[in-house]
Design a protein around this nucleic acid. Structure first.
Lengths: 220, 220
DNA sequence: GCCGTTAACTTAACATTGATAAGTTATCTG
DNA sequence: CAGATAACTTATCAATGTTAAGTTAACGGC
C-alpha cells in the first residue's frame, strides 16, 4: 500500500524542454504498467510518480492509450534492431528462419514484461487490441505499428527463402502467420504461466522451432 | 447508441424464484459481454436489460467478475462435452488428436471473451490471472477452473495415443505442451487481433493442425 | 528593463464506473 | 392477520478518465 514513489523530477520545465517531461511520463508509465498492469495504473498515479498533476499528462498524450502505444513502439524498436542483425549475418534461408524465430523467442523471454505489455494485450482495453498488427499500407510513423514492421520482416525473409529455392507448404504470408503463431504460443505460455511445471524449457524451444520448420517447409 | 433493449422480465419475483432472476442476469450479461466485450459492459446496462436496478445484481453475484466466471464455467462445460464426444466417437489416435485440437480451436473462436478471460487473463484483476492452468489438486467446483480441465484431457489423449502404439517425438507431456502452445498461439492471435487481414482462416487452422501433428508425431 | 506571447503547468469540475448502505415492498408462514 | 424476510429500490460513495479554465514563468522584441 505504501505509495511513496518519489517525485524525482525537478520543478517546472524550461521553455523548450517539454519533451524531457514527456519522456519522464513514459518512463513512469512503463514502470507502473509493468508493475501493476494497464488497468490498475491510473493517470493520477503516473502523474504522482512524475511529480506533476494528472491533467499535465494530457499536454503530451492525447489519452492513456497513447502512452501505451508510444511504449509499444519504443520496445518494438529494440526487437527490430536484433532481427536486422540476423538478416545481415545469416544467409542460409532455412537457418535464417530458424534464427529469426529464435531471436523472437529470446527477445520475449529476455523481456517478459515488455512482451506481455505488447503482444499479450494484458489488461489492454478493447480499442487497443489491434495494436500489434496493421495493414502494410499504414503510415509507418503512426503510433502502434511497430508490431507490423516485425511481422513484415518475417514475411520478407520467407519470400526471399522461397526465391532462393526453398519450397513452402503454403503461401508465404500464411507461412509467416503460422510461424509467428507457433513462436507466440510458446513465448506467451512460458511468460504468462511461469509457475506451471513445464516439462523442459529447452526441449520446448527446440521442439517448437522444429515443429514450425517442419510445418512450413516442404519435405525434401 | 440506441439502448432500448426491452426489459423482458415480468416484475418482482415470487418468494422462491430468485434463481430464475439469477439466470436472467446471466443471460443478459452473456449477450452484452459478447456484443460489446467485458469492459464495455456495465453493471447498469446488464441491470437495464434484465429490468431491475443495478444493485439488484449484487443479490445474486458478489461482483462483476463472478458473473463472467459463472458464464465461463458454463461455456467451458460445453467444450468439455464436445471433447468427451470426440473421445467416445473417434478411436484412431492421430485423428483423435487432430479433432481434439480442432474442437479446442473452434471453441476459442466461438467464445473469444471466455477464451481471453481464462487463457489470457485479460481485463481481469491479478487474482484471476493464473486461472487457466492450475495444479490437478485444485478444487474442480471452484469457479474458473474449466480451462485446466480441458488441458488435462489433452494430456490424457496423448498418453492414450502413445499407449495405442503411436510414436511421439518427445515425452507425452512435452508433446501436450507443444500441441497446446500451437493451438493457443493460433487461437490467441485470431482472437486478439481480429481485424488483422489473416491470409486465410481455414488454411491457418488446417495448417496449424498439420504443423502440430507433424511436429509431435514421429515420421512413419 | 519591461512587456506581451505562450509553453508549462494547476485547480476545479464533470460524467461514468463498480460497489455499498439503508430503507421499502411484497410474499409466504404460522 | 402479523411478523419475518426475500426481493427489490433509492441514495450515495470513492475512483476513474478527461476537460475547462485559469495561473505561472520563461523567452524574444523593443
Amino acid at each position: 500500500m505504501s505509495d511513496f514513489s518519489s517525485p524525482v523530477t525537478g520543478g517546472r520545465k524550461k521553455r523548450g524542454e517539454g519533451h524531457t517531461r514527456r519522456e519522464e511520463i513514459l518512463q513512469a508509465a512503463k514502470e507502473l504498467f509493468l508493475e501493476q498492469g494497464y488497468d490498475s495504473t491510473t493517470i493520477r498515479r503516473i502523474a504522482d510518480r512524475v511529480g506533476v498533476s494528472a491533467p499535465a499528462l494530457y499536454l503530451y498524450f492525447q489519452d492513456k492509450e497513447q502512452m501505451m502505444l508510444a511504449l509499444c513502439d519504443q520496445t518494438f524498436g529494440h526487437l527490430l534492431e536484433s532481427i536486422s542483425e540476423i538478416e545481415k549475418s545469416v544467409s542460409d534461408p532455412r537457418e535464417r528462419i530458424r534464427q529469426f524465430g529464435e531471436a523472437y523467442l529470446r527477445f520475449g523471454l529476455k523481456h517478459p514484461d515488455e512482451y506481455r505489455l505488447i503482444f499479450l494485450g494484458s489488461n489492454i482495453p478493447e480499442s487497443m487490441r489491434k495494436v500489434g498488427h496493421r495493414m502494410p499500407t499504414d503510415d509507418p510513423t503512426r503510433p502502434g505499428v511497430g508490431g507490423s514492421l516485425v511481422f513484415q520482416r518475417l514475411i520478407a525473409v520467407l519470400v526471399e527463402a522461397e526465391a532462393a529455392g526453398l519450397k513452402l507448404n503454403y503461401p508465404a504470408d500464411t507461412c509467416a502467420e503460422l510461424c509467428w503463431m507457433g513462436m507466440h504460443g510458446l513465448a506467451s505460455a512460458l511468460i504468462l504461466k511461469p509457475e506451471f511445471p513445464w516439462s523442459n524449457r529447452d526441449l520446448l524451444i527446440n521442439g517448437m522451432l522444429d515443429m514450425v520448420l517442419k510445418g512450413i517447409i516442404r519435405d525434401t
